[in-house]
Amino acid sequence: MTQQPFKNDADASTGFLLWQVHAIWQRQITAALRPHELTQVQFALLASLLWLMQREENITQIRLARHAKLDVMMTSQVLRALQARGLLERREHPTDTRAKVVGLTEAGIAKAMAVIPVVEQIDAQFFSIVGEQQTQLNGFLNLLIQQEG
């Protein structure tokens, strides 16, 4: 008998469980964003940019990508699409000619402000099952994020 490369129980595979939870959650978020004509990545970048704009100045594409934990090249492509829709603007960095500074337009701020509560409602419903352990879950998720550096 050859040894199987998998655990005997798929429910014991943390990575597979995380994948499944993410897929279920993502379907719900995608459905909620559809009427707003946003993808999940577009929403993540709009919301992240709004959050950063409230705290920092001269936010670069790289800073935004790192904050959202997204690939820099994909971030640039998505930002171009959002710029074409009039939701954000990109301009030269005041001190670093190699960098682009991004910011939401008034339309981008309005879109983000309209959609954030929709996503937060999905999150509240989806994660309500963990109840009082949500703070602990968030702590574990933050530990996993922090190990990336």
Results as ranks from 00 to 15, higher is better:
residue 84 A to L: 10
residue 86 G to R: 03
residue 86 G to F: 00
residue 87 L to I: 03
residue 87 L to C: 07
residue 88 L to T: 01
residue 88 L to M: 15
residue 89 E to L: 04
residue 89 E to N: 05
residue 89 E to Y: 01
residue 89 E to M: 06
residue 91 R to S: 08
residue 92 E to V: 05
residue 92 E to A: 13
residue 92 E to S: 14
residue 93 H to W: 08
residue 93 H to M: 12
residue 93 H to A: 14
residue 93 H to V: 14
residue 93 H to E: 06
residue 94 P to S: 04
residue 94 P to Q: 05
residue 94 P to I: 05
residue 94 P to N: 04
residue 95 T to C: 01
residue 96 D to S: 10
residue 96 D to W: 10
residue 96 D to P: 06
residue 98 R to I: 05
residue 98 R to Y: 08
residue 98 R to N: 07
residue 99 A to P: 09
residue 99 A to R: 12
residue 100 K to S: 03
residue 101 V to G: 08
residue 102 V to R: 02
residue 102 V to C: 11
residue 103 G to Y: 06
residue 103 G to P: 00
residue 104 L to R: 12
residue 104 L to S: 05
residue 104 L to Q: 06
residue 105 T to H: 04
residue 105 T to I: 04
residue 106 E to P: 06
residue 106 E to A: 14
residue 107 A to L: 02
residue 108 G to V: 04
residue 108 G to H: 02
residue 109 I to M: 11
residue 110 A to K: 14
residue 110 A to H: 13
residue 110 A to F: 15
residue 110 A to M: 15
residue 110 A to P: 05
residue 111 K to Q: 10
residue 111 K to L: 00
residue 111 K to E: 03
residue 111 K to Y: 03
residue 111 K to F: 00
residue 112 A to F: 03
residue 112 A to W: 05
residue 112 A to Y: 01
residue 114 A to F: 03
residue 114 A to V: 06
residue 115 V to Q: 04
residue 115 V to L: 13
residue 115 V to R: 02
residue 115 V to G: 05
residue 116 I to L: 07
residue 116 I to F: 02
residue 117 P to Y: 11
residue 117 P to I: 09
residue 118 V to D: 11
residue 118 V to L: 12
residue 119 V to S: 10
residue 119 V to G: 08
residue 119 V to M: 15
residue 119 V to I: 09
residue 120 E to I: 03
residue 120 E to A: 08
residue 120 E to Q: 15
residue 121 Q to P: 03
residue 122 I to S: 02
residue 122 I to M: 01
residue 123 D to V: 00
residue 123 D to S: 05
residue 125 Q to Y: 06
residue 126 F to W: 06
residue 126 F to L: 06
residue 127 F to K: 04
residue 127 F to A: 08
residue 127 F to H: 07
residue 127 F to C: 07
residue 127 F to V: 05
residue 127 F to Q: 05
residue 128 S to E: 14
residue 128 S to Y: 07
residue 130 V to M: 14
residue 130 V to P: 11
residue 131 G to C: 09
residue 132 E to L: 12
residue 132 E to G: 10
residue 133 Q to H: 10
residue 134 Q to P: 09
residue 134 Q to I: 11
residue 135 T to V: 13
residue 135 T to Y: 11
residue 135 T to P: 06
residue 136 Q to R: 10
residue 136 Q to L: 14
residue 136 Q to W: 15
residue 136 Q to D: 03
